[in-house]
Design a protein around this nucleic acid. Structure first.
Lengths: 330, 330
DNA sequence: TTGAAAGCGCTAACAT
DNA sequence: ATGTTAGCGCTTTCAA
């Protein structure tokens, strides 16, 4: 075992409490000479704080926990960057646990590995928590916040306004002359999906078009969902534009469209939702409704940290990035 | 504060140690009736283990720590999946910390947040540790292992054989009739890059071609490195095939080549290194030398876990995946 | 400015 | 099968 505070105390000839004060930098409470000696001794002995001991006595730590889903969400990185930056600005550490959204047992393990320690708070990155696991989290009395996911109950979250996303994406196509517009990859269970669908319908309603059922293809935000959606539309589709619920879905649609012999955007326009780097590495580059994932991370740590109290359901703004996948028609 | 073992003990009317035994499932050492009562009480009180206390007394935990670099390595997910699966097979938990490879101060924070707790071991996912931080890790006496990165000293690692990667990638092009072959995106500092370069040169040497300096374009495994490399080759390049050191580099090369008016693979062949999903979502799909990242994760936890002792530098096998970006010429 | 002492929640001998 | 006790490494009163 490595050196403890006692070893240092013995070596220097002071009490453990003095060492503790020095190492915790409680200046005013020690003089510089002893401090020097203590620090040197710590150095020499290769002292390393035992956080388990610290947390046990303090009953809290300065670590923030992030729970991410193991499904390949390519925006998780941006959120994490935001969390990390804001956390380190306040001197908090960040630990991440990895959970398969689908498996509630695995989800519980992930959750427990963080809430069994006195973490400052937990941030959930587009994780659909099971009923039980949500209760587990609530009962722990640790502050938490969902990121990139909204809810209709009173759970704290920071996300984009998904109605607005659906609306703006569709509207963008409409403004470019499109009327037969599909919605690809939406998943109906989470609130997010339903909201985007609402936005989509609202925009279409404004120009008096009533979307056929076949225009709305469900999926799970994955590449393959995109391919499937486009396959279902078929090579003779009446659609001239498609709203895709994620960048990966958009790429799936793009490739399958290409397999059908479509040229994008000449034969078919695509607008993607998310706006990650992926949009820029495909050809044509994808026009997108971009979310500010980085800021979600920042606001997330503020929320579990500041105890702002009431304003615990926040939206971050979205913006349109016009690239090359939308064409003006007619 | 939430309920402790003592609260349960009091409620049930037994000693704390009994509660501990029941909750730790040390069967044989308690009878079923008390066990029942204890468990029910724990349930009712919403008891949650305090891991800080457990770790303090046990001086070890069952958590494995993974350090990942915040640069967008798209294969980290696959390694993590391997780690997670193997870890949970043994009942270990996994926590991940996020570190910017470039900033040694940030790297230290990340490292400290895990080695200040009694973790089982730490896995470093393509992290170039600074001298100091490596010593920090060594001094902690916690088992560690580098993943997806080899070294010429005695550090434990599991990675692919990078000479073989460079060699096979180049050889594949040679077998398809190419002689003027570039190497794009290599970074010379880490051992990995030099090794791949060696493999590349070796393959070329076998057919008596001496690569010009301009054929070898350095970079940092990123998309932009790929674009730059191709820009430097120019639209009148003599190259007919290019080995790219990562999928992202390959995509950068692909897009820039397309900007020059090249058709891939008709005018230019590309072989990528890594073989992540990225290879399949671009058109044409990229032929790759694929690494078995998932297995690296598995072997990594075995290594820090088994104390296999000697065999602490392991390779996992690579394989060629022929897709659509290489054309037979002449 | 420093020391002594208590205690955080838990486990692991050792008794019984 | 269960209780008693000591102690993990640290922080924090309280006294000096």
């Amino acid at each position: 075992m490595s050196a403890t505070i006692k070893d240092i105390a013995k070596k220097v000839g002071v009490a453990p409490s003095t060492v503790s004060r020095v190492l915790a930098n409680k200046s005013k409470y020690y003089n510089l000479e002893t401090a020097e000696k203590v620090k040197r001794a710590a150095q020499e002995l290769g002292y390393k704080k035992n956080q388990a001991a610290v947390e046990l006595v303090k009953q809290h730590s300065n670590v923030i926990a992030a729970v991410v889903s193991s499904v390949k969400t390519n925006f998780a990185g941006e959120i994490l960057d935001g969390i990390k930056d804001e956390a380190s600005r306040h001197g908090y550490d960040l630990i991440i646990v990895y959970s398969n959204s689908a498996d509630s047992k695995e989800q519980e393990r992930a959750l427990l590995t963080v809430i069994e320690r006195p973490v400052l708070g937990v941030l959930l990155l587009s994780i659909a928590l099971s009923e039980n696991n949500l209760n587990l989290l609530k009962d722990s009395e640790i502050p938490y916040c969902f990121l990139s996911m909204g809810f209709d109950d009173n759970r704290p979250f920071v996300s984009s306004d998904d109605i607005e996303i659906g609306y703006k994406a569709t509207k963008l196509l409409i403004e470019n002359g499109h009327r037969n517009i599909g919605l690809a990859g939406i998943d109906m269970y989470p609130y997010t999906g339903r909201l985007r669908l609402d936005g989509y319908k609202k925009a279409l309603q404004e120009i008096d078009v009533d979307p056929k059922d076949s225009w709305i293809q469900s999926g799970d935000y994955s590449y393959i969902s995109g391919e499937n959606a486009m396959s279902n539309y078929g090579k003779n589709t009446e659609l001239t534009g498609i709203v895709c619920v994620s960048d990966m879905v958009a790429i799936g649609v793009l490739n399958q469209a290409r397999n059908f012999g479509f040229k994008v955007p000449d034969d078919l326009s695509i607008v993607s939702i998310d706006g990650t780097e992926m949009c820029k590495i495909v050809q044509p580059q994808l026009t997108s409704i971009s979310q500010d994932f980085y800021k979600m991370g920042i606001k997330g740590v503020q929320q579990i940290t500041d105890n702002i109290g009431d304003k615990n359901q926040q939206f971050v703004s979205i913006h349109i990035e016009e690239r090359e996948s939308v064409k003006f028609i007619k």
